[in-house]
Write a protein that binds this DNA or RNA. Structure first.
Lengths: 285, 285
DNA sequence: GCTTATTTAGAATAAAAATTCCAAAATCAC
DNA sequence: GTGATTTTGGAATTTTTATTCTAAATAAGC
């Protein structure tokens, strides 16, 4: 029976190829679960109930959780069409982080192909923007966001600091605050006049900066912090220099296309922040 | 050596205990990242940017992703207070299951928690942005986009005009053009100096305006057109006043949340346009 | 109830991964 | 510059983990 595979395989309708997505996997699981042997069914029930564990557990751990032997896990994987547990786990892992690796490689490929038509480039930015937005929901900590709104709602004046690629974000914040009658100052760096001395202890600063960080932004923010102002930072990674000065950090990971990014996620975060602050302040009037 | 731990540990001031949550981990990372050696910092930046990979990757995979040696990864883990990679990964894996629910469910959950909460508002903007981006591919005519790139690539100087809510778009264009050494002027309206006379017949103007249209933008654009300059318009509807003056129109329909919009689509269109023009011009050099 | 086919448990083995170690390179102090 | 110290790369080693194998147990067919 052990050697019967090669010739008998075409007759074996149950020996299918591996599912390519987790949806396909669970679909197959649902349709075949009740014709599985006892222990395999037991394990099937377990991962149906705990799908999130597959990507981050070992065979032994899952086996223990389902109260079966490791070898039963192996048999189950093979029964589902995988070569073994590793292949099945790979599916679950890639499904989780599919946005990251897939997208990164796709962009790398695009870059190699050199110049593209404007529409193709636009499509890339659209894709990058959509992924960034999707990611935004996980990178922004709701508590930090709430805290940022609190701080900004009670500040006397709100100062916006951010230059170069961050400037579109601060200028949009300025527009929004103006429209909602929130006292806010956009530090634009015009005429090289450094307005940092207008920041008062009861004020708050929204600092927007992405790697490589603009020196001026860090400077002004650090000084504002020293005076006693609250800092809300919109930045890209926790290792940002703003982490050191006890800022409330709102993290945005934006996908780049070449040397540029679409800023979609940053702008969305900024406007949500502004509107929240605006409505809160105007309610308190 | 195996038994040497208990007595030697107290002498080691740098040996801190392992973080117990990922928040604590990233907090420590943020405060200590810049005093790490080169390769360790490099790896720190990588996992700050790709935190979701830690739970589902091996040392070798992460090392490759960050372009460091596996041993550097180990040193990093120990530097952060863990006994090794496995312990660190265990922390990330325990956090993992909370993130499992997919984008759609997360979004729904965020929306539920009170229409007034900042997170719920952010969710609205994210959704609006994603829809706008999706729409963008259909509203922008590839031919018009190609034509716009052609016109801008052969212009002597590119002028950007757009105020108020359109200003983030023009300022980002200005940043992009500057970075690619494309001669471009941002008409910011500063000091109420109207710079429209600097526009020459061989120049081109990118006018960005959304309903209700800013008078100044229409004014300047109309005059530039009269001089003989080419006009590229980024606007929201075909009935825009810019249609009358034979501008190349790039249409963006942006979804609003209340009185505001996330500008995702407009920014994406702008940056794609800028990069296309930039690469074209620099190739022709 | 006996024979045959499946299924199971657990040990044995193979593969892969984490971790340590050390010489070479780089950096720092003087 | 010279010597001491830190950092790095890469191979060697150890540990963990996946996978296979086999004998025992269970179930199915007659």
């Amino acid at each position: 029976m052990i050697e019967a595979k090669p010739d008998a395989s075409n007759a074996q309708a149950t020996e299918r190829s591996a599912p390519e997505t987790t949806e396909a996997f669970f679909e197959r699981l649902g349709s075949t679960a009740d014709q599985l042997p006892k222990r395999l069914k037991q394990f099937a029930d377990f991962i149906a109930a705990n799908p999130d564990r597959v990507a981050v557990s070992t065979v032994a751990e899952l086996a223990e959780g389902a109260d079966v032997q490791p070898s039963a896990v192996m048999r189950f994987c093979q029964e589902m069409g995988f070569s073994g547990f590793s292949q099945m786990q790979k599916l679950f892992r890639s499904d989780y982080s599919q946005k990251w690796p897939d997208y990164a490689t796709r962009l790398a490929k695009l870059r190699e192909q050199g110049a593209e038509s404007p529409s193709a480039l636009l499509a890339e930015f659209v894709e990058a923007g959509r992924s960034s937005l999707e990611n935004l929901m996980t990178t922004v900590d709701p508590k930090a966001l709430q805290e940022a709104v609190d701080v900004l709602a009670r500040a006397e004046t709100i100062h916006m600091v951010g230059f170069r690629r961050a400037f579109p974000v601060t200028s949009y914040l300025a527009y929004a605050f103006e429209k909602m009658d929130v006292p806010a100052v956009l530090h634009s760096g015009i005429a090289n006049i450094n307005m940092e001395h207008v920041i008062r202890p009861n004020d708050a600063v929204i600092a927007v900066t992405f790697a490589p960080y603009t020196e001026l932004t860090l400077d002004m923010t650090t000084k504002a912090r020293a005076i006693g102002a609250d800092i809300v930072a919109i930045t890209d990674v926790v290792t940002s220099p703003l982490a050191r000065i006890k800022a409330i950090q709102l993290l945005v990971s934006e996908f780049d296309v070449g040397d540029f990014r679409a800023l979609s996620a940053s702008l969305s975060l900024a406007i949500a922040l502004a509107v929240s602050v605006g409505t809160r302040r105007n309610r308190n009037l």
